[in-house]
Design a protein around this nucleic acid. Structure first.
Length: 320
DNA sequence: AAATCCTTCAACCGCCAGTGA
DNA sequence: GTCACTGGCGGTTGAAGGATT
């Protein structure tokens, strides 16, 4: 496989698929000497390859700590929820999946998850519902819309549960996967995600969150308009029109550019009051926001169930 | 059985950030 | 400060092989 021919390029370096002999040479050299400088490695290992090609082959295929084969359901959920958080930052996502490479995750996303989300009526880029397109495809716009939302809420619920479990586990000092990251240089985001899973959360945040969330919840139920709710994976959107408080600084807004609705986050942060003032570094803020997102998704899921029940009851009453 | 279409994924490319001279 | 080099990353390609016609 690969897109280049088997022939050597202008510099005399071989390209294209690796042969077993080449693999053996590379493996043997690295096991004996370590990779050292990738640029110098091919010559020392007796390979007619570029250092870059050797590095890629090692990272994505030859490393002994690589897990191959089908992705588990848990891995898939992790990918989806992390993608909702960080977007196409495959190296960050890979850092949280044991023995998976960023390339593998990227391929899996593009060939499997992306399509499945699209079929569920979820935009794989924004993680928001594509209600119009699903309705058009299915004939019944209303049913399609409801189906779409139910899928959304269920996805959100699973995501939230998974995230909370993960954070809880991390707090109990279970081993993280960071040491297994295919990248030797962890990105800042890896540290942030790791740190956010280990910091204790203040219950005041929960209280603050309950205030904000249930106001929106009540409002949604009163209007009885399901389509007013946004995708659970996008989270917090129903707070969007709230004005952002002045206490949250601009640099944080920049740093939080991970697909969140910032105004919604701001609103919760404002309600959190004093808790927030103590958290003046980005790590704390990121951690707090992650928790808020998880809680949002759980809450939206509950809200959806109630709305569906109310709609059903109304329908029954009308029929009877 | 052959042709065509579709899916998968290994490998490449180009860009960017970090580092040292 | 800036230049060159290196490694890391995300996007893209295209061959292989499976599925469908």
């Amino acid at each position: 496989m690969g897109r280049s021919s088997l022939y050597s390029d202008a510099s005399g370096l071989k390209r294209g698929p690796w042969t077993p002999e080449e693999d053996q040479k590379l493996l043997a050299y690295i096991q004996q000497h370590g990779h050292g400088s990738w640029r110098c490695l091919p010559e020392k290992a007796g390979l007619q390859r570029s250092g870059k090609s050797c590095r890629l082959r090692w990272i994505n295929y030859l490393r002994p700590d690589i897990k191959r084969g089908k992705f588990s359901q848990h891995e898939e959920q992790t990918i989806i929820q992390l993608h909702a958080l960080v977007g196409n930052r495959w190296s960050v996502i890979a850092a949280h999946l044991p023995k998976r490479t960023d390339n593998e995750i990227k391929n899996y996303w593009n060939t499997h998850i992306k399509k499945r989300l699209a079929m569920m009526g979820i935009d794989p880029v924004t993680h928001r519902p594509k209600v119009a397109s699903l309705g058009a495809a299915d004939g019944g716009p209303k049913n399609a819309s409801n189906l779409s939302h139910m899928a959304q809420w269920e996805t959100a619920r699973l995501e939230a549960e998974t995230r909370l479990v993960k954070e809880s586990r991390a707090r109990h000092n279970e081993p993280t996967t960071d040491s297994l990251s295919p990248r030797s240089r962890p990105s800042p985001s890896v540290h942030l995600l790791k740190k956010m899973a280990t910091r204790p959360r203040c219950l005041d945040i929960l209280k603050a969150w309950q205030n904000v969330c249930f106001k929106a919840f009540e409002s949604s139920i009163n209007s009885n308009n399901i389509t007013d709710l946004e995708s659970p994976t996008s989270t917090l959107h129903f707070c969007e029109k709230t004005q952002a408080p002045p206490t949250v600084n601009a640099s944080f807004r920049e740093e939080m550019n991970v697909g969140l609705n910032k105004s919604g986050v701001d609103m919760v942060l404002e309600a959190a009051g004093e808790v927030w003032t103590g958290a003046n570094d980005f790590l704390d803020r990121f951690s707090m926001t992650s928790m808020i997102m998880a809680l949002t998704q759980v809450c939206i899921s509950v809200a959806e169930q109630v709305i569906i029940m109310k709609t059903t009851i109304t329908t029954i009453v009308m029929i009877s």
